[in-house]
Amino acid sequence: MYATGVCPYCLMAERLLRAKGVADIEKVRVDLEPARREEMMQRTGRRTVPQIYVGDRHVGGYDDLAALDRAGGLEPLLAA
């Protein structure tokens, strides 16, 4: 997950993933490593954080993650 230290949506995404049983969340802090923000924008086409990946699949931001969960698609993705 691409994130910053002060992003409330990053914290909400982390909370949701932990509630689903994800113990290890790899965070890339784009506020501490500005070059990684460029990497994030190249990979995702987006400028805002969080940008969440489950494995190699780009899920999107927090709203996308929450919508995926509401639609019942998050748990199967995490289980794969």
Rank of each mutant, 00 (worst) to 15 (best):
Pro76Asn: 08
Cys7Arg: 01
Met41Lys: 12
Arg46Ala: 09
Pro50Phe: 00
Glu26Ile: 15
Asp63Trp: 06
Val54Met: 01
Arg37Ser: 09
Cys7Pro: 00
Glu39His: 05
Tyr2Ser: 05
Tyr9Lys: 08
Thr48Cys: 04
Pro50Leu: 02
Glu38Tyr: 13
Ile52Val: 03
Glu75Ser: 13
Val30Ser: 08
Arg15Asp: 14
Asp24Gln: 15
Ala80Pro: 10
Ile25Arg: 04
Asp56Lys: 09
Leu77Asn: 06
Val49Lys: 01
Ala13Lys: 12
Arg37Val: 11
Met1Ala: 11
Ile52Asp: 02
Pro76Arg: 09
Gly21Gln: 01
Leu68Ile: 00
Ala71Val: 04
Pro76Leu: 08
Leu17Asp: 07
Ala13Ile: 12
Ile25Met: 05
Arg43Met: 11
Pro50Thr: 01
Gly60Tyr: 03
Leu17Arg: 05
Asp56Ser: 11
Tyr9Gln: 03
Val59Thr: 02
Ile25Thr: 04
Gly21Asp: 00
Leu32Glu: 15
Arg15Trp: 13
Ala35Glu: 15
Met40Asn: 06
Gly60Leu: 02
Thr4Glu: 04
Met41Ala: 12
Tyr9Leu: 08
Leu17Ser: 02
His58Cys: 07
Met41Pro: 09
Val30Met: 09
Leu16Ile: 08
Asp56Ala: 11
Asp56Met: 07
Ala19Asn: 14
Gly21Tyr: 05
Gly21His: 07
Pro8Tyr: 10
Leu32Gln: 15
Thr48Trp: 03
Tyr62Leu: 05
Arg70Ile: 08
Glu75Asp: 14
Ala13Arg: 12
Leu77Trp: 04
Leu17Gly: 02
Ala66Pro: 03
Ala79Pro: 10
Arg18Leu: 13
Arg18Ala: 14
Ala79Cys: 10
Leu74Ala: 07
Glu39Ile: 02
